[in-house]
Design a protein around this nucleic acid. Structure first.
Lengths: 191, 191
DNA sequence: GTTTAAAGTTACACATATGTAACCAAATTC
DNA sequence: GAATTTGGTTACATATGTGTAACTTTAAAC
């Protein structure tokens, strides 16, 4: 009982992501967003009271989809299989880490945002638990060195994604080299 | 033949750094800067025509000091000594990588900025050469695996700095663990 | 075909950032 | 101690972003 929408939530999220990566939290504006969506700025206010509400909702969406992918990997039996799958997920969308960090900057401007933030926190706990299981398996299988803190293991994986591949290597070659380095280091001989 | 300045270039750079890290390029404003310096906004315009000029000059300063530190390490004889020293430099100021990335966003608004950008490019070449020598030494000494691209070696070192230490480990313990992982990997056995 | 409600636009009031011009303040030089 | 020069402030014009109210459009419901 209404007219057709000029933009979908998918479009909105996709453009939001691009704008966040290009301009950061402070540089993200409804003016930019409206231009990209080719609607008037006021149209966006039909759905969101301010950019904080939009962004926090987007963050929840982003973390949710990431979690769904992540849960797939916990179905794999061996640590190595899970490790490979985790790598695939992260390299499939290399911007998640950056996006998550930008998300930290969203101020709690009202109750709605506060509620979403709580939801985000719960998702982060889920994320942490899921990854914690992955690391536990690695230790149980005696693949991971046991003296390495778990957040270092995860940090290595999440951060190295951002190293720009400026070599002539293909994506696959690059990722494989990266994997090797993470697993066995850059040095020839142990000492 | 003039009155005393209310703020030094050091103060200006220090506050600029903080503001850039907190708000990113788009969020950095002369209004914020002036407030922090406790001068009127117009006072800043006595020295810089716009924020681009200030920021690009700051970037040159930042890269220059980093380069100076870097040149110290090339005096060390062995690759391992240079490796340790490089780690120290980077962990001494973990924000350089982020700052450099923000610097990429500065638009060339006039000739002055263009000139500074050229200078920045030259400094980046110097930086690259300096680090290239470090890696060459590592390969010559047969310490580094020779099939690892040099920008992966450098990327590993620069990126892992940003992994937050949320464990109970001291800074020193954390850095040592990180070093071990970069050198020899997270996995127990080679395969 | 009229009613209804969501979707969208235009226009305004307000806030904040920018760049500049006119003016005031203090230290130096003669 | 008057003139000069640099540092600093106030005030204004301009630009951009925000949030809202009044209005228009369109498709479904009756």
């Amino acid at each position: 009982m209404a007219r057709e929408r000029k933009f979908s939530k998918e479009e909105l999220y996709q453009i939001t992501k691009k704008l966040l990566l290009d301009h950061g939290y402070d540089g993200y504006t409804f003016t930019l967003l409206a231009n990209q969506l080719e609607v008037s700025r006021a149209a966006i206010y039909k759905y969101y009271d301010n950019k904080e509400e939009l962004l926090i909702e987007y963050m929840v969406f982003e973390l949710n989809t990431f979690l769904q992918h992540l849960k797939e990997i916990s179905k794999k039996d061996t640590f190595m299989d899970q490790f490979e799958a985790l790598f695939d997920i992260i390299f499939n969308d290399m911007s998640i880490y950056k996006i998550r960090e930008i998300g930290m900057h969203i101020p709690t401007v009202n109750d709605k945002v506060a509620a979403y933030k709580k939801k985000l926190d719960r998702l982060h706990v889920e994320l942490y638990d899921s990854l914690q299981g992955f690391i536990r398996l690695g230790r149980e299988e005696k693949v991971l060195k046991e003296d390495i803190p778990s957040n270092l293991v995860l940090g290595m994986i999440f951060q190295t994604v951002n190293i720009p591949n400026t070599t002539g290597l293909t994506h696959l070659e690059w990722v494989n080299t990266l994997k090797k380095v993470i697993c066995h280091g850059m040095f020839r001989n142990a000492n």
